[in-house]
Amino acid sequence: MAPLLSVSGLHTTFRTDDGPVGAVDGVSLSVDAGKVLGVVGESGCGKSATSLSIMGLLPRTATVEGSIRLGDRELVGMPDDQLRALRGAEMAMIFQDPMTSLDPVIRVGAQLEEAVRIHRDVPKQEAREMAMKGLASVGIPSPEERLRSYPFEMSGGMRQRVMIAMALINRPRLLIADEPTTALDVTTQAQILDLIRDLRTEVDAAVLLITHDLGVVAEMCDEVAVMYAGRIVERASVDDLFARPQHPYTWGLLTSLPGRHRAGERLHQIPGTPPSLLNPPPGCRFAPRCDFVMDSCRADPAPALSTHDGTAVACHLDAATRAREGARAARDDAP
């Protein structure tokens, strides 16, 4: 069966005053219905630009090349009105900051009803009914009263529930969650992650989860793509990624997590900062920060993603070194 979402060779470029910035540089990934793909990386790695490219929500200064297929439809180059008919119906998105993602002057109920009535010609009463069921399904107490609330009358966790209800109200086949819990407190984060997990099985949607938090990845995802400076450097099942990480950047991410260290023991740190995408280094973009860098890494062409045992990795290192160092990073990571 073909995957529900399949992105290949995606290039997203922003026009800026200083020149073109290649935020996404040849990303390929796919998600099946009922599965969660995590896209993990640090700020500026292109994970959000990837999700906005899929949704077609980029500003005018951006150009998208490559292929994005949702089911059997190609989204790149699709006319605006057709894309709009898919947004919010076939594919939906929830965002990082629930405090600012809802319209502050419109009642929550009206915002939910709007999401229904944009796509379906149903009477107001029915839309209201659906909005109420939506709120109930995300665990909001007394949903009928809550329909009349304004966003500012709700807590952050409540608002994120409203966002989720709104995204799922038309039963989309693809749900993109961009850092859905980053702005929330730990105990609220746990509630929202539970909710997304429960609803995913219920609506059987494919989920693309964008996050910087490896903990969230481990809790939520089936597959993971690790992004660095606009490219995917490693793609694996969640178990493989944590048990047998293959890319030096992934090792760095895992070993720099403070949670796995005792006081007194030094944290591993990746030296330096990610490169500017205005003028990225040739070859592997991680080379300037990599502990295992070789001469071939600094020259074009950059290592391509190649697959071994189900894990795709873009690295020139030999398999033996990767296995050895990967095991070390994974062990480091184990309690």
Partner: peptide, 15 residues
């Protein structure tokens, strides 16, 4: 206890 339990664990098997 709840705070500790709520924090996501970067280990899929344990999670």
């Amino acid at each position: 206890a709840a705070l500790l339990a709520a924090r996501p664990v970067a280990d899929p098997a344990r999670a």
